[in-house]
Amino acid sequence: MTHGTFELDGREVPFSPGQTILQAALAASVYIPHLCYHPEFKPHGSCKVCTVKVNGRPMSSCTTPAQEGQQVESNTPEINEARRTLVQFLFVEGNHFCPSCEQSGRCTLQATGYALGMTNPQFNPLFPNRPVDASHPDILLDFNRCILCELCVRASGEVDGKSVFALSGRGITKHLIVNAESGKLGDTELSVGDKAVEVCPVGVILRKRKGFDEPIGRRRYDIAAIDEFAAAAPKGGTP
C-alpha cells in the first residue's frame, strides 16, 4: 500500500507506511550503498555508509522513516566521497587481504568498495593483531575481517536464540567477542545451519573446508555488481 512519495535524486519514490528511506529505495530498485542493513533485521544505523541528505541534512537512510515530500540526495559526488572514506576506514582498521580471501568475489565490503569507486585504501593500515578462532569443528572465526556490523549479533540473538556473539570495548578498541567462558567458539552452541553463520557480509564467520569452492566467474559479484543486484532484487533489498 503506497502511503506517499519522496524525491530521491530527482526521482519520485513511493513508500509504504513504516518504511525507511533505504527500504523504499531498494523496493524501487534504487541502490543506496549499505553494510550493516539487512532486510531481515531491524535497522541499526551504525555503519553510516547509507548516509543520504534529507532536506539538506545528513541522515542514515536505513533508520530514517520515509515521509511525504522529502528531498533526498544520495548519488552525489560529495556523499559518495564520504561513503568511500568510511569504507576505506573499514579496510585499514582490519586486515582485509582480498587477494587471498576466500570471500573475495562474494564479499559485501569488497563489492561496496568497487561500487564506490574505491581504488586504494588511502589511509595507513593499522594491521591489528587478531588471531583466528579455529576451536569450532565446523566454523572458523577470522576476526581480521570484522567490520562490526553486528549482523551476527542480531541474527544469533533474534533468530537463532543463542546469543553467541557480542561486541565489546569502545571506539577503536571495539571488537567482536564470543559469549563463552573460554571466549572460544568451540564452547558455544553455534552450528553451521544458524542464521548467524549465513549472515556475515564479509569473511569472519566461515564454514570450514569450503574455501575456494566457487570458481572465479561464478561468485556472486562476478555475475553482477552489487548495485545491479539491488536493481534486480525482490522488494526489500539485498542482504
Binding site: 587477494p99 587471498s100 580471501c101 576466500e102 583466528v132 570450514k208 573446508r209 569450503k210 574455501g211 575456494f212
Partner: peptide
C-alpha cells in the same frame, strides 16, 4: 602459519 589450510594454495601463489 596459523592460517586455515584451504587458503594456502591461493595465498602462497602470491
Amino acid at each position: 602459519q596459523g592460517r586455515p589450510y584451504w587458503e594456502v594454495p591461493v595465498m602462497v601463489q602470491r
